[in-house]
């Protein structure tokens, strides 16, 4: 499997580290919503097909990437820097100035 890093270009799978499901939505740090935290930790779509994933180019530029990979074929249809593609921090956390 080859992932085309937006900076480094096409690189072998051995240079990348899987960082998990890209569909998870992390609840606000101050949240006590049990359902939301349970979903964040345990709920996974587990699709047979296109899947949003986070990979780190650990053996390269070390940036985190948002990758769309087909779990049946390993075909990769989309790669972007996770920082650009990821969900925005909530307004509450921005105001407190906490690091993301």
């Amino acid at each position: 499997m080859i992932i085309t890093c937006p900076y480094c270009g096409p690189r072998d799978l051995s240079e990348f580290a899987y960082q998990g499901d890209g569909n998870r939505k992390r609840p606000d740090q101050a949240s006590t919503n049990q359902k939301a935290w349970n979903a964040y930790v345990y709920d996974r779509l587990n699709p047979a097909g296109e899947h949003n994933e986070i990979w780190q180019h650990a053996g390269g530029c070390r940036r985190h990437l948002a990758v769309t990979r087909n779990t049946l074929t390993h075909a990769i249809s989309k790669v972007a820097f996770a920082a650009a593609a990821g969900p925005k921090r909530s307004a509450a956390r921005r105001k407190q100035g906490k690091a993301g």
């Binding site: 051995s14 650990a58 390269g60 530029c61 070390r62």
Partner: peptide, 8 residues
Amino acid sequence: VGSGLSTV
């Protein structure tokens, strides 16, 4: 020539 990269 001149260019660089990071790998492992």
